[in-house]
Design a protein around this nucleic acid. Structure first.
Lengths: 261, 261
DNA sequence: ATTTAACGTATCACTATGCGATACAGCACA
DNA sequence: TGTGCTGTATCGCATAGTGATACGTTAAAT
């Protein structure tokens, strides 16, 4: 009745489960481990509630508890879930061997990114050179409009949806050179439509260049992209197009026809 | 009261959350997507219960629902959880750049495995050659006793625990040559104690060889190992020791001292 | 066409179950 | 020895999850 903000939430909604999941989501790169109190503060839930939820998550193997500090951390179960995800994603199975082959050929970092709402998410990463940590691990989400993979994907969408995305999807400053001007992004995507690939630079990290090609589905619409990420210290636009692009396109195109299901 | 099999489960246990988690766990490589009915069968829960739990998981973004078939699949959220895990695991951050460097040097598949109960779990994988799918994705759990990484880890443990592990930890047949004789495993681990590394062959997959070294913690006890996996068609024991082992040991040892926290 | 089955969806009364205030215990820092 | 943190345990109450039942739709079978 006197429910604070929650919308209707009918009888098919299990609040206790949702709260538990929200506890999981409370962990992130800035807070990779927490005490009960911190969790309570962060989630805004009652101390007792957190106690019960955390205890349950611990007993079920989803949270590890440091025997000394009693602080809670994500457990190996979180990795097992990723393992499951991979089996359920039809794209990964067919793409993986080709991505490995590509990374071997080029000797540069190859990523597989999928669209996830208005972000892209890195589903597979094959790092070949040292980069910063976040660039080596899967599951990272980035604003689609700011990434070459996101733009490559969008370039295959019908104009209306594409335009809506360009106008409304979120942008965030990562570097001083992250493009925040939507007109400039539109131009970049228009180029991608014409060329079939997208190049970006300094968007997430200074002196990082990326080139991406869409993996086009049966309906002509891409939901994923193959991306190659290199250092601008040793690469430039011309070399990228000459030495990387042909193989990248080959790989992306060779994955596309396999998407019959 | 008339509770079927469940043990006590005191007042600090949120059954609804636990059930929801059990729904997540119902998905695996053999069942990567399911209908409500299948879920009910598989979890043994009431149809209505599954309906509510699945609906909640869907609304919270943990299950994707195919608009046509209404079947449920793991969502991208499962990958985000893995992303979180990586930030919380102190080992990964220090190990990753060195593993990348190692894989580049050797041009062979490098894995980082951690002990997780009586299994090892692959935390990071850097595939360089085509292998079968399951060998390319993180989160896979394998019986520790059957893997070179598991044996390398165990070799650093105090004798009592080590012996208990050898006697009681589970074994499973993966290939006709998977070793099921615990005495033979004990001998293999004794060798590892003497040499500081472990070699295995044909254990998970025929004609697959693996060599692993422990990453030793501050207390002298390993909880993880670096493993290199190669094809027996192009490698043999002697070459493995000559061309891979030195670098592998270097890498493992260079990670160890960084584990102060 | 008609039947049957299987599935996803919706409703509802009951009470088991999760809620949160409160009190207790252990460990720091002063 | 106090003070303020932790994490842990208890308990009565009413909410919130339960599971039987029923409805509607789709797909295969006759």
């Amino acid at each position: 009745m006197a429910n604070t903000g929650e919308t209707k939430r009918d009888t098919l909604f299990v609040g206790a489960l949702a709260k538990g999941l929200r506890v999981l989501r409370a962990f992130d790169e800035s807070k990779p481990e927490m005490s009960l109190g911190e969790l309570a503060k962060r989630t805004g839930m009652d101390k007792s509630t957190i106690q019960r939820l955390a205890n349950t998550l611990h007993l079920e193997g989803y949270l590890d508890k440091d025997p000394n500090t009693r602080r809670l951390r994500p457990s190996h179960a979180w990795l097992e879930l990723a393992y499951c995800y991979y089996w359920s994603d039809p794209l990964v199975g067919t793409a993986m061997p080709k991505l490995i082959e590509l990374s071997r050929q080029l000797g540069e970092t190859i990523n597989l990114a999928e669209i996830s709402g208005d972000h892209i998410i890195y589903v597979s990463r094959l790092p070949c050179k040292r980069t910063y940590f976040a660039a080596t691990i899967i599951g990272r989400r980035l604003p689609a409009l700011s990434t070459s993979a996101g733009r490559a994907i969008l370039s295959t969408w019908p104009e209306a949806e594409r335009e809506a995305a360009i106008e409304t999807w979120p942008l965030k400053v990562f570097t001083p050179r992250t493009v925040m001007d939507r007109d400039e992004i539109r131009r970049s995507i228009d180029e991608t439509i014409a060329n079939g690939f997208s190049v970006s630079r300094d968007q997430m990290l200074l002196n990082e260049m990326a080139i991406a090609a869409p993996i086009i589905g049966p309906d002509g619409r891409a939901l994923a992209g193959v991306q190659c990420s290199v250092s601008a210290y040793t690469w430039d636009d011309a070399r990228l197009r000459a030495e990387i692009l042909p193989w990248l396109l080959d790989t992306a195109n060779s994955i596309s026809p396999a998407l019959r299901s």
